[in-house]
Design a protein around this nucleic acid. Structure first.
Length: 590
DNA sequence: TCAAGGATGACAATTGGT
DNA sequence: ACCAATTGTCATCCTTGA
């Protein structure tokens, strides 16, 4: 129930201490240029808070020349999208073997070298970066002219796409009469291109960026701590009901059974054109990560959802998408909502002092036998029920490792098929690969019921089938969700690095008798215009671009390399952005 | 395949001050 | 009673070396 009028209210109360610390930098952005040394040094904590490495920031500040925070950010994002490793510049002289494993990366390496040589010229950097991303050089040049030299790479990419859209309009590819319907969210037209682009057209990019930044906080109001919001909403009985909609309950735009769920929202103009896209990642990422992701994906605020409202296991995730949100429906049959409903046979051994009703997030690894044996030994040695101290220790491990009771005083991790069940996959979906692999692939996957709830709106829109680009497909959570929704997949381009996962998806595709064409690619970095254009020529385009990029460097479970979006794996997010941009451009061209 | 390995951030509860 | 600061509790799509 976060309406626009609420959002436009005074939001200074949303800013916590960390954010007030950032304000000098944000203010710095609103100035045309920030050249004094004091302001430049203030950029460091700002970008550190965004998750960039210190060396990378130092390099970016040096190379940006003018110390303008916006050009520094551009450089940082360019570095990040080139390679996650921040130390690579010191390693320049060394061999390249540990950087990219395949040929697809070689042009990025060249690009990096060129960046080195280009030195101070950030305009040239941007131009080269965008050309390397696949944009036409002339188009980039005119975009720089339109947006000004200070425009960020996002704005430039955005502007190029806008120009394409407008060109398309001139050729009459789009029916202007349908433009009147776009206000009506319930009648979302997936083929409606937006013509009223004015976000970056006046060239005052830095002030716009500033507005976007502030707006970002506005839109994130529902993502803030409930204590603050509750205070804001005032007292009375409404508080009880309001809690359902509060951010920390992570219900997104509302649950299926909730009559007061939000039914419409205002999407940025740029997001109101095909294809639909759906992006997923862990909700509890380091500070600033979702801000960056959101900024790159049309400034759409994430929909944070905990899958505990859809299954017997928690799964806190953020989803950024441009799907309509009215008329969502729940996948049938509705899965068991509690642990004991899911596994009734374990009730006999479940001690009454284990009050869990939901599992925590299902992870990629499970508890060792040593741990479960320790617990067994400890409980056996103590009276029943055990002392509060023992009880507390046991419960801590049970919660941490999602253990279930399989006998008197005996606990065990979930079996792979039980994890499949909890996540909404068919039984033995991952069978055939090693046990360890199964846990890892499942732990990295979607919760099918949650994703299907979001995707259910597509059923009415595409009665004849859907063409999808599935990035980071994994074991095919998106495909399974669409299949279970009864949405026919006429063509799928699936990108997944793991061979065993690709094999799984392939077998599932055949076993379930899919009539559509499944094309598999092994690396997002190999997805170029040629591949995309080939698919588009063959099938006419994409209806949905879906995927969740690696969370390895974002999740709290990673004790060693939780370094944020620029991490080795998580930086692949930028390829999601790149590919989505290319798909939009190429579809506009055809 | 197993076992061992903390840090970060959200939130609740508490404290301490006015 | 209120606000701010502090402390406590809890959860987290994991990596590495053996």
């Amino acid at each position: 129930m976060v309406s626009d009028s609420d959002e436009s209210a005074d939001l200074s109360w949303l800013l916590n201490d960390d954010e007030t610390q950032l304000s000098p930098c944000i203010q710095g952005r609103s100035n045309e240029t920030v050249q004094d040394v004091a302001s430049t040094s203030s950029l460091m904590p700002h970008f550190l808070a965004m998750g960039f490495a210190r060396e990378m920031i130092t390099k970016a500040i040096e190379e940006s020349g003018d110390g303008n925070s916006e050009s520094v950010l551009d450089l940082l994002l360019i570095y990040s999208s080139l390679d996650g490793t921040t130390s690579r510049n010191e390693d320049k002289a060394e061999s390249d073997e540990n950087r990219w494993e395949d040929d697809a990366s070689s042009d990025f390496d060249e690009m990096d070298l060129e960046l080195e040589m280009a030195g101070q010229d950030s305009i040239s950097n941007k131009l080269q970066f965008l050309v390397k991303m696949g944009y036409d050089q002339d188009e980039v040049s005119s975009a720089i002219q339109r947006c000004g030299e200070n425009a960020s790479v996002f704005e430039l990419a955005d502007s190029i796409y806008a120009a394409q859209t407008e060109k398309e309009e001139e050729f009459g590819d789009c029916d202007p009469s349908s433009a009147h319907e776009q206000k009506d969210e319930d009648k979302y037209d997936p083929f409606l291109h937006d013509h009223k682009r004015q976000r970056f057209d006046d060239g005052a990019s830095s002030t716009h960026r500033n507005d976007n930044q502030k707006h970002g906080h506005l839109k994130w109001a529902y993502g803030r701590p409930s204590t603050t919001i509750r205070r804001h909403e005032g007292g009375g009985d409404d508080d009880r009901e309001a809690e359902l909609f509060l951010p920390n309950s992570m219900v997104g735009f509302g649950l299926p059974m909730d009559p007061k769920r939000q039914l419409s929202r205002e999407l940025p103009d740029v997001a109101q054109c095909p294809p639909f896209f759906y992006y997923e990642n862990v909700a509890l990422a380091p500070r600033g990560v979702w801000d960056t992701i959101s900024r790159m994906l049309d400034d759409i605020p994430p929909e944070f959802v905990d899958s505990k409202y859809f299954s017997a296991a928690c799964r806190k995730r953020g989803y950024i998408h441009n799907l309509p949100i009215a008329n969502r429906f729940h996948l049938k049959p509705v899965p068991p909502q509690t642990i004991l409903e899911a596994f009734p046979s374990n009730q006999a051994h479940w001690p009454e002092w284990d009050k869990r009703t939901k599992f925590n997030c299902l992870q990629t690894v499970v508890a060792s036998s040593k741990l479960t044996e320790q617990i067994h030994a400890e409980l056996k040695a103590h009276p029943n029920p055990p002392s509060p101290d023992v009880m507390k220790r046991v419960m801590k491990e049970c919660r941490k490792w999602n253990l279930i009771w399989i006998g008197q005083n005996r606990v065990a991790p979930l079996e792979p098929h039980e994890v499949e069940f909890l996540l909404g996959f068919p039984r033995d979906h991952t069978r055939g690969i090693s046990r360890t692999e199964r846990y890892r692939s499942l732990g990295n996957s979607f919760n099918v019921d949650t994703v299907a709830y979001h995707l259910s709106v597509l059923k009415g829109i595409y009665p004849n089938g859907i063409r999808i680009l599935s990035l980071f497909s994994g074991i095919g959570g998106a495909e399974v969700a669409l299949h279970r929704l009864g949405i026919k997949m006429t063509a799928v381009l699936s990108v997944e690095k793991s061979l065993s996962n690709r094999n799984l998806l392939n077998s599932w595709w055949k076993e379930t008798g899919q009539e559509g064409e499944l094309q598999e690619v092994d690396d997002v970095r190999k997805v170029d215009d040629a591949i995309l254009e080939c698919f588009i020529r063959r099938h006419g385009g994409f209806d949905l671009v879906i995927g969740g990029s690696p969370c390895n460097n974002l999740t709290g479970s990673n004790r060693l390399h939780r370094v944020g979006l620029q991490g080795e794996h998580s930086s692949l997010f930028y390829h999601y952005y790149r590919i989505l941009s290319r798909v939009r451009y190429l579809m506009g061209k055809h």
